[in-house]
Nucleic acid binder design. Structure first.
Length: 874
RNA sequence: GCGGGCGUGGUGGAAUGGUAGACACAAGCGACUUAAAAUCGCUAGGGCUUGCCCGUGCGGGUUCGAGUCCCGCCGCCCGCACCA
């Protein structure tokens, strides 16, 4: 009988469903919660989904076999812009589009045979989820976790609408093409910054998280210690006698060259009222988008206000006040002092506007000479201080000196340097100690304070869009901004909306806004902003513990199932989604919806790589790329013989046509082949390239396993095969525990090869086949059931406990030791594992090759690493 | 620009600081076949003088020994707060 996944896979899926195998129930077993990041219902599943959910399924099935009560749910991250875009482009309603997509994707996902408890499925746009999210909002508001303040958005002046960052392309609106402006709006914020310290410190306890993600979060939260102080101004308008600045490098104060203000700084705003040229400059700055990336990469622009400040350590030292487009109003005080000698961005700015460049410190052992007013020279006989191309030039001409040209001198803060004009502490100290010394001095003299700041900003959740969870708040002329009463929840979106005009349909809806104030009963208008979709995904993991409860969570269920034991998703969520979720869990604990023990909701995190594919393209007559689908390309040529250009390993994207539809793979090869492929070869954390050859190879292997199960075998017992099987149990178990599924796959190839070569027959062969079935079952569960049944397994393999390796069958008594001579492998010897060092040394010295290399001399050194290697140093 | 990561044969990858290339893909040769496919078996990092040289993005360093650790580069990928 040939391998026919189409009939067998459906059969086993039905058998699992009939048995209720994957329904999560609270019972006496220890619990295990596996969660993969839920999908956005874009319309079709893609290979990235298959990979993500297969990885989770391996864990879920493996843990189940290990005796855990497993929760493995699935849902839909269903609010968001694409649904509105679809409505604009094709007509229809975002709700219909979304639910149709969910239905399609669910039907595409089911044949994969994932061990999901579908009874817990929900979409974040379901009325029930919206209701509970609004209830959470009200509780958070009550608990002081929410605030309202002004923030900047991208404004399209032609479409009169707010744009998302991705809708701003080269500073222009994606539809209108109009120059985008920054505009201030009053918005709702979650006060995540109140938790900066806690979110930072708790990272240390997240042992199941990748170090890189913890590092990224720590850098994002951005705790810094610095000095906050005031520059006394000269000639500034009333009310601006001083400018508050914050610096993390107060040790460079003696290298200060200018003060730079954000274009949004209050002083700049005041100046702009009477100075049109300053207003014009501000307008120019506003044309840069709102993203930090856009601001940081934009050409540095400055405007000299003509005002000056006094240096805090020398009233006669005056510094000019500039307005600079790279100073962020959101961070620190919106004002900085520039020290060009030790900061590359400040140096670029200083060179552009010909401001002074004065080093505050120099490398140790270097003598310093003033060359001119703006530059200083380092003299050294050691070129390690050549941090500047210009300096090399000068050295090449025979001058033994170095100077700051266009490269700032920025040693690590731990490095000891020479302070040219020491303010506090000695003249030779590290940056770290000098920073503390200057802060101490400022506090003693009363002109500044040491402060701790965080880069993390509050989380703005207001979106001027329709397809999101309405913010349950009303605006009353008498009572002001009033939370909606819980009895009036949910506040649902109106269905009669159109998307033929840009902007938020809630704003222009004839009646939806009109409501009554829950406080005074008078007329009021609804908030028309909806919530950021990150809010939806910040608590879905908690909702899965009791998806149909009339409250956000059911505490008994949440207490039992939380936390997520293993969370799996893309590295692109390393910062925002995971940080917001960590905050949300704390907020839910504070409002009683989660136990305190769930403040860190994800005990372990695994970040998977992307699924990539080659891109095939030809060029049209103007040289523009024309993309071709993989199925239209054979051996690097189109069907008509035209050769194609190949771009390797690119993220799958519809526009580049380098997509493979899992539905096609499953219908031609079966789900197990798709699953086996995404687990093979590439380690899960790395990108995997989809190739048709690889898919065929996976199918071939599974067919081979099928044949192996079907063959009877000629002989009887084969102790070597049994040893191989137990070796495989040990290796596969270890690999699955370590998320090294590609290695588990390799070990299973080895076991299958061993079975193929073995003559074992009868029960001896069947016993090994049952082990193979068990080890295969988390990865290719349908085939595993078939093999299990053929090999005489009891019941279904899905219910069989995970096999245990017999330690007695794992030991090898003879080991091969490679012999290195001067670090290069020259020979090897086989010795009993327990052989003492001295005997090994004697054997090694007697070895022919060793003697040849030693030429009669005694070795300088002989290193024996028991069980591993021998190194002879001649 | 800033933060984080990755880089090993023709390809995907393996390797507690200890035999670089496990296991696969593609390739070549052979068996079976009228033939092909499928299947099974064997070969295989590169080089030459067949026991030696060179090889883990590039350049240095630490070590008896470095793909692995350290320093400096290059390239690619992810994130940058309104994409999900």
């Amino acid at each position: 009988m040939p391998y026919d996944p189409s009939s067998s896979e459906a059969h086993w899926q039905k058998a699992w469903a009939d048995a209720g195998s994957f329904t999560a129930i609270r019972d006496e077993r220890p619990k295990y919660y596996v969660l993969e990041m839920f999908p956005y219902p874009s319309g079709r599943i893609h290979m990235g989904h298959v990979r993500n959910y297969t990885l989770g399924d391996v864990v879920a099935r493996y843990k189940r076999a290990q005796g855990f009560s497993v929760l493995h749910p699935m849902g839909w991250d269903a609010f968001g812009m694409p649904a509105e875009n679809a409505a604009m482009e094709q007509g229809g309603h975002p709700r219909d589009w979304t639910y149709a997509n969910i239905a399609t994707m669910r039907e595409q996902m089911r044949p994969l045979g994932l061990s999901i408890d579908w009874s817990r499925e929900f979409a974040t746009c379901d009325d029930g989820y919206v209701a509970q999210q609004q209830a959470l909002f009200l509780d958070f508001l009550d608990a002081g976790l929410i605030t309202r303040k002004s923030a900047q958005v991208n404004w399209d002046p032609v479409d009169m609408t707010v744009l998302a960052n991705e809708q701003v392309i080269d500073g222009k609106g994606w539809r209108s093409g109009a120059q985008v402006e920054r505009k201030e709006l009053t918005q709702w914020f979650f006060r995540i910054s109140d938790y900066s310290e806690e979110l930072l410190e708790a990272l240390d306890g997240l042992n199941g998280w990748p170090e890189k993600v913890r590092l990224m979060q720590a850098n994002w939260i951005g705790k810094s210690r610095g000095l906050q102080f005031r520059f006394q101004t000269i000639g500034a308008p009333a009310g601006f006698d001083a400018i508050e600045v914050y610096t993390t490098r107060p040790d460079t104060l003696m290298g200060a060259s200018f003060v730079a203000l954000s274009p949004d700084h209050p002083l700049v705003k005041t100046l702009a009222e009477t100075a049109p040229e300053i207003e014009a400059f501000r307008e120019e700055c506003r044309r840069i988008g709102t993203t930090e990336e856009a601001i940081e990469t934009a050409p540095k622009m400055g405007f000299d206000t003509g005002l000056t400040v006094q240096h805090p350590l020398d009233p006669n030292w005056h510094l000019p006040i500039w307005i600079a487009n790279f100073v962020l109003m959101d961070y620190g005080t919106g004002a900085i002092f520039g020290c060009p000698a030790h900061d590359q961005r400040d140096l670029d700015f200083a060179r552009k506007y010909e401001l002074s460049v004065k080093p505050a410190f120099s490398p140790l052992g270097v003598e310093l000479y003033p060359e001119s007013e703006n530059e200083h020279i380092f003299i050294s006989d050691d070129d390690i201080f050549a941090y500047d191309d210009d300096a090399f030039d000068e050295r090449a001409q025979g001058n033994e000196y170095f100077r700051i040209g266009n490269v700032a001198y920025t040693p690590l803060k731990t490095e000891v340097v020479h302070y040219i004009d020491p303010v506090a502490g000695g003249s030779e100290q590290s940056g770290d100690s000098a920073i503390e010394a200057v802060i101490g001095l400022a506090q003693d003299q009363g002109w500044g304070e040491g402060v701790t700041k965080f880069r993390l900003r509050d989380w703005g959740i207001s979106r001027q869009r329709y397809w999101g969870c309405p913010i349950p708040v009303v605006h009353c002329a008498k009572c002001g901004t009033v939370p909606e009463a819980k009895r009036n929840l949910p506040v649902l979106l109106p269905q009669d909306v159109s998307f033929d005009v840009p902007g938020n349909p809630l704003d222009r809806h004839p009646t939806w806004r009109q409501t009554t104030c829950p406080q005074c009963g008078g007329a009021a208008v609804r908030e028309t902003d909806t919530m950021d979709t990150f809010v939806d995904s910040s608590w879905y993991y908690a909702r899965f513990t009791s998806p149909h409860a009339p409250t956000p969570t059911e505490r008994a269920d949440a207490d039992y199932w939380m936390n997520v034991d293993q969370y799996i998703g893309g590295i692109e969520h390393a910062i925002l989604h995971l940080l917001y979720s960590r905050f949300f869990a704390r907020a839910m604990a504070k409002t009683g919806h989660l136990p305190d023990s769930a403040k860190e909701p994800f005990a372990a995190l695994f970040t998977q790589g992307m699924v990539t594919h080659e891109i095939y393209l030809t060029r049209d007559e103007r040289g523009r790329p024309v993309y071709h689908l993989p199925e239209d390309v054979v051996d690097g040529k189109l069907r008509d013989g035209t050769p194609v250009e190949i771009i390797p390993s690119a993220k799958m994207s519809k526009s580049k046509k380098n997509v493979v539809d899992p539905v096609n793979i499953v219908s031609s090869f079966g789900a197990d082949t798709a699953r086996w492929f995404v687990l093979s070869d590439s380690p899960p954390e790395r990108d995997v390239e989809w190739t048709s050859a690889g898919a065929e190879a996976a199918y071939k292997f599974l067919s081979r396993v099928w044949r192996l199960a079907d063959e009877a075998g000629e002989g009887g017992d084969d102790p070597d095969l049994l040893r191989a099987a137990h070796r495989a149990i040990a290796d596969v178990t270890k690999s699955i525990e370590g998320f090294a599924f590609n290695k588990a796959v390799a070990k299973l190839y080895e076991l299958a090869n061993a079975i193929g070569k073995s003559k074992a027959g009868g029960e001896s062969r069947k016993a090994v086949l049952r082990i193979l079935a068990q080890l295969l079952s988390p990865m290719v569960p349908h085939l595993a059931e078939e093999v299990w049944a053929i090999a005489g397994g009891q019941g279904m393999v899905v219910d069989a406990p995970w096999p245990k390796a017999d330690p007695a069958l794992l030991e090898d008594d003879i080991v091969t030791l490679p012999i290195q001579i001067n670090g290069k492998r020259r020979a090897e010897i086989s010795v009993p594992k327990a052989m003492p060092k001295e005997e090994i040394e004697a054997l090694v010295l007697a070895d022919e090759t060793v003697q040849r290399f030693l030429e009669g001399a005694a070795p300088k050194k002989l290193i024996v690493v028991p069980g591993r290697i021998v190194n002879v140093v001649a």
